[in-house]
Write a protein that binds this DNA or RNA. Structure first.
Lengths: 115, 115
DNA sequence: GGGGTATCTTCCCTACAGGTTATTTAACCT
DNA sequence: AGGTTAAATAACCTGTAGGGAAGATACCCC
């Protein structure tokens, strides 16, 4: 996944309204109106959020009469999972980090002595 | 993790410069100047990026003489991993999704017939 | 104390995100 | 055809993100 795509996905996820919409879509397809229902927000605002999600590839839109149902597309989330996975050791190997911390602490104390 | 915190973390990750900084910090502590080196960008701009990362809890800053070394803090990344994990089934259980798709397709064909 | 180095602060600019209202398009149903 | 419903578009406003330049601050070393 290109950096640009990852930008778009992370940016899309940085809004609680949009994350809530994804959560709703995890339960199945929904129309714009249905997605808008929980929010104190105009429909055009909702449409904009959906465009952001769509540009990030997180949803696709259908066409059924006057409805444009939204469907969750989880592929970009897999990319996010892959990206974050490369950092797993940094939250699991706390001991290495502890060593770093102690070394740092020592250096700072040395610094404090000089102050 | 609160929604606000998740907002801040995702927003921080939505910038390629900041993701590159985290990647650099995965190799160990670095000063502001070291972090700035790969980018065609003024130091104040780098400082701002670091503040964004710090507010998101993704880095902490030390104090050593005239240096303010940055260190990766992966805890928020674990939260991101947890969040995204709740969607795992949606990129793994492709068959369920396929069923949805076929149902959708059928509905659209019905629609096409009427047009 | 003075020069050099690292970093932060302040002020400014531009672009874009997220929201609004009003209008338009498109499809349905009588 | 006319009315209703779903959704998109257009035009606008406000706040904030990301960048630059210039100056301030803090620390080291001689």
């Amino acid at each position: 996944m290109s950096s640009d795509q990852l930008d778009a996905v992370f940016a899309a996820l940085a809004d609680p309204t949009r994350r809530a919409m994804l959560a709703r879509l995890a339960a199945g397809e929904a129309s714009v109106k249905e997605l808008a229902e929980p929010f104190a927000m105009s429909l055009p605002a909702v449409t904009k959020h959906l465009h952001v999600l769509q540009r990030a590839g997180l949803i696709t839109r259908g066409k059924r009469a006057q409805w444009r149902p939204c469907r969750l597309e989880a592929e970009p989330l897999r990319e996010v999972a892959d990206w974050v996975e490369t950092y797993r050791q940094f939250w699991e190997h706390r001991l290495d980090r502890l060593e770093d911390y102690l070394r740092e602490l020592q250096a700072e104390e040395k610094q404090d002595d000089r102050e």
